[in-house]
Design a protein around this nucleic acid. Structure first.
Length: 427
DNA sequence: TCTGGGGTCCTAGGACCC
DNA sequence: TCTGGGGTCCTAGGACCC
């Protein structure tokens, strides 16, 4: 059996942990640039705040009900996430925990008997809550897809389930499938859901489970669809993944706080993003052999819906894989020079690193300059200082200091757990 | 006026090779 | 006028996730 543990309204819960006055009050957390709503407390959901909706459209509702609004505070969420995951690793052994996202983890429960599962689920929930202050929901089932489905129902019927759902019999599984709309199945997005309903009258998960594999293969994304249907039938097709995450692509991209029209400002932004991406790269001991940069223009045509704006991108294949910020910034600047057009306003830019290989491989390159070790030490030092001190205390000159492009974050709470001067104080 | 920032996997089709 | 068959590698694009 497998389980998924999912933190309830994670970002909102993190904020409330340090400001308990907002317990039982409607709370929302915004995306970067204060653009969208990305987390809502139960109270905010009940008042009709939409998930991932643009903040400006919800502003009236927010004001009317005096909801508390936070800009996102990723230092805080990242640290609390680590505490939750560490608790799970202690309870189940680290080989049985697969961190799936900042607020979710899959658990392998094969070491437990069927009779043990109910009390185990309860124990997991209670312990995480006691140790971290974060409330979680637990879904247990034979496969990951069914566990996700169980978890969703547990959360939805909170008062009846106590946020725990166990699908351990065929009857329970069928019942759960029947209660789940096809668009709420993990792996079915808007596109597939519309198609399934309109063309084949498939409305719930039970109907979806009964399609044959050829159908899934042709209409639901090939083998991905086949796996999905198998999982719904209770046949594991998505196994636990190795915890050692080495990303195949690393991206740092941002909308600008305000549109930017000057080459120097775009370069500053892209240099900063490159430095950030290189940091992520070094954290997984990788080196990248391809760097690409993209910019998105701000269109003046207001007639069309949002998200317009042409994307221009280009890439450079590096002579050898590297993780050094300075070696990545140089090609990034070349790319910006090529992409930039005078007189055009830009609203977003980004850097992507790919062709990622283990860092050791660079040692094998005969053409490598001899002073690499010193650079590596310098990089480690910069990473450590930046992590423990104020953000970007040490940065490369090309990252600039003017920052007109910097994102808006007007309502961010203190970084209670990761910055000495912002520590939570008890008086 | 204002709509995030990451990621993954898969497929089709073109280029190229023998 | 006729124009193989099999394979690999790469990229773009589509779909999904949180």
């Amino acid at each position: 059996m497998k389980a998924i543990v999912d933190c309830n309204n994670f970002y909102c819960s993190c904020e409330r942990l340090f400001q308990p006055v907002y317990e039982h009050k409607p709370v929302v957390v915004l995306s970067n640039n204060d653009g969208c709503i990305i987390s809502r407390s139960d109270e905010a959901k009940e008042l009709g705040v939409e998930m991932a909706g643009p903040f400006f459209m919800a502003k009236d509702l927010v004001k009317k009900h005096e909801m508390q609004v936070f800009s996102s505070n990723y230092h805080l969420y990242g640290d609390l996430s680590w505490r939750v995951m560490e608790t799970l690793r202690i309870l189940l052994g680290k080989n049985n925990v697969e961190v799936y996202s900042v607020d979710e983890a899959f658990l392998n429960l094969d070491n437990f008997s069927a009779e043990e599962l109910p009390s185990l689920a309860e124990n997991i929930k209670q312990t995480v809550e006691k140790w971290t202050g974060i409330k979680v929901s637990v879904g247990v089932a034979p496969t990951k897809v069914l566990a996700k489905l169980a978890n969703r129902l547990a959360k939805k019927n909170k008062h009846k389930t106590g946020c725990i759902a166990l699908l351990d019999t065929e009857d329970k599984i069928v019942d759960a499938l029947r209660q789940t709309a096809v668009e709420d199945v993990w792996g079915i997005g808007r596109r597939y859901a519309d198609k399934l309903k309109e063309r084949w009258c498939i409305y719930d998960a039970l109907q979806l489970r009964n399609v044959n594999e050829d159908f899934a293969k042709t209409h639901l994304g090939g083998v991905t669809g086949v796996r999905l249907v198998r999982e719904l039938k209770g046949v594991p097709a998505k196994e636990m993944e190795d915890e050692l995450v080495t990303k195949k692509m690393i991206a740092t991209t941002r909308m600008f706080g305000d549109p930017v029209g000057s080459l120097s400002e775009i370069k500053e932004a892209v240099a900063t993003y490159t430095a950030r991406a290189a940091e992520k790269l070094r954290r997984q001991f990788g080196a990248a052999s391809v760097i690409s940069v993209f910019v998105v223009t701000k269109e003046e045509n207001h007639a069309v819906s949002f998200n317009r704006g042409a994307t221009h991108s280009n890439y450079i294949i590096l002579p050898y894989a590297t993780s050094f910020t300075n070696e990545l910034i140089k090609p990034a600047m070349t790319l910006v020079d090529n992409l930039f057009k005078e007189g055009v306003l830009y609203k977003k830019a980004g850097v992507m690193l790919s062709g990622i290989v283990p860092d050791q491989s660079i040692q094998g390159n005969l053409f490598l300059p001899a002073n690499k070790n010193n650079e590596r030490k310098l990089m480690d030092m910069i990473d450590n200082i930046n992590f423990s001190q104020r953000n970007d205390m040490l940065k490369f000159a090309s990252s600039g200091t003017t920052r007109n492009w910097k994102m808006r974050q007007d309502l961010r709470s203190p970084r209670y757990t990761t910055r000495w001067n912002e520590l939570f104080e008890v008086h």
